[in-house]
Computed example of a mutant assay.
Amino acid sequence: MISDELDLRHLEAPEPMLRALDAADRLAPGEAVVIVAPRLPRPLLMELAHLGYDAEPEAPRADGSVRVLIRRPGDAEAAA
């Protein structure tokens, strides 16, 4: 279930990454949040993977912004 969509395009670095990580941290197992970043957030994607989250970026939009679905694995997935 997607809990929210956060538009982070208007923020200065490092605020988009900090807010995205905070939103991911607040997810319950199996929940998801969508962020909209001004461009592909490679450092964020690497950090989320390191922390065990699933992050699926969409193709960039015409303005270069990217929607990213961030999902916290469910309990059964985390145990596998």
Rank of each mutant, 00 (worst) to 15 (best):
P16A: 14
I2P: 06
L27N: 10
D63A: 07
P43Y: 05
L51K: 11
L40P: 00
P38Y: 03
A32F: 06
R19I: 04
G30R: 03
P43V: 02
D25R: 13
E12H: 06
R9D: 02
A32Y: 09
V66K: 05
R19L: 14
S65D: 04
E47Y: 07
P73T: 09
A28I: 03
R26D: 13
R71T: 12
G64N: 10
A23G: 01
V33F: 02
E12A: 12
L6G: 11
A23W: 01
E77D: 14
D54R: 15
A13H: 14
Y53T: 05
S3A: 12
S3P: 01
E5W: 09
P73S: 11
R67C: 08
A76T: 09
D4H: 12
P41N: 06
A13E: 15
R72D: 10
A76D: 13
E58G: 05
V33W: 00
G52F: 12
I2A: 13
L18H: 12
A13L: 15
D25C: 07
I35Y: 00
P29Q: 08
S3W: 04
P38T: 06
P57E: 07
L27D: 11
I70W: 01
R42E: 14
G52T: 12
A13R: 14
L69A: 03
M17L: 15
R26Q: 15
R61M: 12
H10E: 11
I35W: 00
A79L: 10
A23E: 00
P14V: 06
P41Y: 02
A37R: 01
M46V: 09
A78Q: 15
I2G: 06
G74I: 05
D7P: 05
P29C: 10
I2E: 15
L48T: 00
A24I: 08
G30W: 04
L44A: 00
R72C: 11
D7Q: 04
A20L: 01
A62Y: 02
